[in-house]
Nucleic acid binder design. Structure first.
Lengths: 181, 181
DNA sequence: TGAGCCATGTAAACGGTTACATGATTCC
DNA sequence: GGAATCATGTAACCGTTTACATGGCTCA
C-alpha cells in the first residue's frame, strides 16, 4: 500500500488522541481543518486501508447497539508517521483565498466597492480570529495539557495570531488607501 | 453557460492586462497563484467557453508562423466580473499547508526534531518572503504604476508582509519553546 | 545549433466534494 | 416526542493535476 497525505493525517490524528473514525472527523473540525481539509468520507476507507497495511489495529467496541470501531497506532504505524514528519522534502502550501483573489481584481470596481471588499476581507479575518480565540485555542490547550502535546496548541495559536494579524493588516491598508488616492 | 471560479480568474486576468492564454498563465505565475492556483491546462478551454458565451472576444494575431490569439473583455464580460466582485457571499478560504500540518503532529517526534520542523517552517516563510520582495512585489508595482491598478500591488504586499510575519512568528515560538520545556 | 521561451492544446488519472443512505443514542 | 449528536458508510460527479504532444521563434 502506498500512503498519501490523507493516510498521514489519519495516523497523526490517532497519535494525538483520536480513537474512532468519528473522533478523527471531530478533531479535524476543531483543529487541523483550517490548514488541511479532510472530508469525513475519506476517513473511514483510509482507516480500513491502514489496518490492512498493519499501521493501525482496530477492535469493535459498540456503544449499545450502535456500532463503533476503535483504532490504535501499531509500532509500524508510529514509525511511518515519524518517518513522514522528519522526511526532508519541500513543505507544500496551497492557498485558495477568494477574498485575496477578488481583492486582486478590485480595480475593476469603483473606489468604494473596492474598499468594501477590503473591509469584508478584514471582517472575515476578525471572525476567524474570534473563532480561534473562543473554540479552537481553548480546545487545543485542553488536550495539550492533558496529553502533553504542545504542538497542536502551537498551531492553534498560529491560526489565532495570523487572523488577528490579517485583520490589522486590512485596516492599515484601508487607511493608507484612503490617505493616498 | 455557467461560470465557475476559473472563469472569473480568467476574466479578471484580462481586466488586469493579460491578452492571450499564455499571458494569463504568466501573470498567474507571477501573482495570484499564491492565493489561487490555476493550472495552464484550464486556461485555454476556459477562454474558448468565455468567447462562446460572449464575455470575451478573441482575434488571431500570429507572430510570424506561431499561432496566437488575443482576447479582450466585452462589456458583458466586464459586467460579469464586476457582478462577481461585488456579490455579497462568503469569501471562501482553503489552506493546505504541509508545514502546519506536520507541526500539528510534531509531538510524535522528539524535542529537537520537532524544533527542526518549526525552523523549516520559518525558513520556508523566509524564502517566500524573499521571492515576494525580489520578484512579485516589484512586478506588481510596475503594472500598478503603468495601468493604474493598485490592488494587485496590495495583494502582492500582503504576500510579502504575511510571509515576513510568519517567519518572525516561527522564531518567536521557537524561543518560547526553548525557554519553557 | 541547441537551449529556452512562446504558444496551444489532448487524454487519462486522481483526489476530493456532494448528495444520498441508515439507524442508534442522548438530552431537553 | 423530537432534535441533535453519535457512527458509518456508498455512488456519482467534478475540478485539477500529470503526462504527453507539437512546433515556431529568439538569442547566445
Amino acid at each position: 500500500m502506498q500512503l498519501g497525505s490523507a493516510s498521514y493525517v489519519v495516523l497523526g490524528m490517532l497519535s494525538v488522541g483520536a480513537r474512532s473514525g468519528y473522533e478523527v472527523k471531530r478533531y479535524m473540525e476543531l483543529s487541523a481543518r483550517f490548514f488541511w481539509a479532510l472530508s469525513p468520507v475519506q476517513i473511514y476507507p483510509e482507516l480500513k486501508k491502514l489496518e490492512e497495511a498493519g499501521l493501525v489495529t482496530g477492535r469493535d467496541e459498540p456503544r449499545g447497539k450502535r456500532a463503533r470501531r476503535l483504532y490504535r497506532l501499531t509500532p509500524a504505524g508510529r514509525r511511518a508517521l515519524r518517518e513522514w514528519l522528519s522526511r526532508p522534502d519541500e513543505l507544500t502550501v496551497e492557498w485558495r483565498d477568494e477574498g485575496l483573489l477578488r481583492l486582486f481584481f478590485a480595480d475593476a470596481l469603483d473606489e468604494e466597492q473596492a474598499l468594501d471588499l477590503l473591509r469584508e476581507f478584514g471582517a472575515r479575518s476578525e471572525r476567524l480570529a474570534e473563532d480561534f480565540r473562543e473554540r479552537i485555542v481553548p480546545a487545543a490547550e485542553a488536550t495539550a495539557a492533558s496529553r502533553e502535546n504542545r504542538y497542536s496548541a502551537v498551531v492553534a495559536r498560529f491560526g489565532r495570531d495570523f487572523n488577528e494579524w490579517a485583520a490589522a493588516w486590512a485596516s492599515e491598508i484601508e487607511r493608507e488607501l484612503r490617505e493616498a488616492p
